[in-house]
């Protein structure tokens, strides 16, 4: 496989992250979460309060009395992140604290499944928070069980023989339907793009939602050295489309722009074949996934025009 292509070398992100994302977390080798945290920290420094429901990050941040993130962290029950974050934001507002960003940081299970009603409520109320769904496409902390964000065809421990039969739930689209001020998709393979989106989100008031694609080595069954490569392939195959939705307009993000042209997209097999969870995938299923990709791009084009 050829090295990933970038048009021009990008400048390093601000180094604020160094004193914030500390060594000694308990993530698995190749975990995408600390990568994302470094981007978060380079935007907000220690002026952020993360509200974290049950998810991998509940464990990754380390055990009491230690914590590998030098910021405010509130661990909360599974279905409650957006509501707790709403309360934190309300309290900060009443107390006149304006330089601290409240961020709900939740996995796909805590967002697309058990946290969906809470998320929808907070979005409808246009709470002044940033909600980041880091999407590793299954319940990884409990041991790779299917979530509604698991893609079609993927093996999980609760879809052990047939693989998941249904397509992935598209939470970003659901958030767009809520009419919130800002919705974006992002990927841990494109930290600069994620950084820009966080900067943009920071400048906007109200409910902001970022759907962050985050490949999981043990859950997706790939070598930990390939985390970034697989996340990049998701974009390069057109499977994962990076965009922003703001002021009623959808803008395709620079890393995804080339793939508006289908001929530029890599075959989705390149993405699938690196992952053991798709080991038993059939040609029919690949076709179904391909069709899903096409219709997704059609939606993007429609939203852009």
């Amino acid at each position: 496989m050829s090295a990933p292509q970038t048009q021009r070398p990008l400048p390093p992100l601000p180094a604020k992250a160094r004193g914030i994302v500390l060594p000694g977390d308990t993530s698995c080798p190749g975990c995408p979460i600390p990568i994302a945290f470094k981007v978060l920290a380079s935007v907000f420094g220690d002026k952020m309060i993360l509200v974290i429901p049950a998810c991998c990050t509940s464990v990754i941040l380390g055990t009491y009395p230690g914590q590998s993130l030098k910021a405010g962290v509130i661990h909360v029950p599974f279905a409650s992140a957006a509501a707790v974050a709403s309360g934190v934001a309300a309290a900060l507002k009443m107390r006149g604290i304006e330089d601290v960003q409240v961020i709900a940081w939740a996995g796909d299970g805590g967002t697309a499944d058990i946290g969906m009603a809470t998320l929808s409520g907070a979005a409808e109320r246009n709470e002044d928070i940033i909600y980041i769904m880091y999407d590793n496409e299954a319940y990884m902390n409990t041991g790779i069980q299917r979530s509604s964000a698991t893609p079609q065809g993927a093996w999980t421990t609760t879809t052990p023989v047939l693989g998941k039969l249904e397509p992935k739930k598209d939470v970003a689209k659901i958030m767009i339907a809520h009419g919130v001020p800002y919705v974006a998709t992002a990927s841990i393979a494109y930290p600069h793009d994620f950084y820009q989106k966080l900067m943009k989100a920071k400048s906007i008031k109200g409910f902001r939602f970022i759907h962050l694609h985050a490949p999981c080595p043990p859950g997706w069954r790939f070598d930990p050295m390939y985390t970034v490569r697989i996340a990049r392939l998701a974009v390069e195959t057109g499977l994962w489309i990076l965009y922003e939705y703001h002021n009623g307009k959808l803008m395709l993000s620079p890393p995804s722009q080339p793939y508006l042209d289908p001929s530029k997209r890599k075959p989705i097999e390149e993405y699938l074949k690196l992952q053991g969870r798709f080991r038993k995938i059939t040609p029919e299923l690949i076709k179904a996934i391909q069709q899903h990709v096409e219709s997704n791009w059609e939606w993007i084009k429609k939203m852009m025009s």
Binding site: I49, A83, V84, G87, S120
Partner: peptide
């Protein structure tokens, strides 16, 4: 905060209480 459920009502109170309200 006119929440969408009691679960969220107390969750929002929890967040606000921890943040000093």
């Amino acid at each position: 905060i006119r929440v969408e459920s009691e679960h969220s009502a107390l969750a929002a109170c929890l967040g606000a209480a921890l943040a000093g309200a």
